[in-house]
């Protein structure tokens, strides 16, 4: 079982990212859970959302305390949130950043293995909007290999209708451009 935690700000689509990941996994025939950090939602405030993906039926309703993977939608969160909190040994942090891994480590002291992509740039160029939730899914799938990128196609189409193609394009481009540390 893989446990994933998304960090974003209210309104950036962290919850949608979690949902789409779970829906894609379910479509692939896997088992999955997606849930927000339950409570009132406030635009701009740091928020989290969670996903479990498994080959077997998932029999737990615990919160996710020790994720295998953390996805950070907004680079500014690194200053106010410890995104590595609880991350498992050998875990992976997937980051939206325009910086290099070395720069990031120097500035933030991140220790985990990193996968980085300039999702804001991709989103702006592809969708003309700085909304990185679907873009970062491309990075997540590239970095984690939990399922093929095609699995996202139908959940994104169902969710976004007329703007699905742009979201998919951003997602595919992020998949190509994500750098994963060895």
């Amino acid at each position: 079982m893989v446990e994933i935690r998304f960090h974003g700000r209210g309104g950036q689509g962290a919850v949608t990212s979690a949902e789409l990941t779970a829906l894609a996994a379910i479509e692939e025939g896997k088992f999955a859970q997606a849930f927000p950090s339950f409570g009132p939602e406030r635009r701009g405030a740091p928020v989290m959302a969670f996903v479990r993906v498994s080959e077997q039926q998932i029999r737990t309703r615990e919160k996710i305390y020790e994720p295998n993977i953390v996805v950070v939608l907004d680079p500014s969160l690194l200053e106010i949130v410890n995104v590595e909190a609880g991350l498992r040994e050998g875990g992976l942090v997937v980051l939206n950043t325009s910086k290099s891994a070395e720069e990031l480590r120097r500035e933030t002291g991140l220790k985990a293995r990193l996968a980085i992509v300039d999702a804001t740039k991709i989103a702006l160029e592809t969708m003309r909007l700085p909304i990185t939730n679907t873009t970062m899914l491309g990075a997540l799938l590239k970095a984690s290999g939990i399922m093929p990128i095609d699995a996202l196609r139908s959940p994104i189409q169902n969710r976004f209708g007329p703007i699905a193609e742009k979201n998919l394009a951003a997602c595919l481009r992020a998949f190509d451009e994500t750098n994963v540390e060895g």
Binding site: A22, I26, A32
Partner: peptide, 12 residues
């Protein structure tokens, strides 16, 4: 059904 824990869960 448990609020949030079940009601807001996405699952198969």
């Amino acid at each position: 059904l448990d609020g949030f824990i079940l009601s807001h869960m996405i699952e198969p």
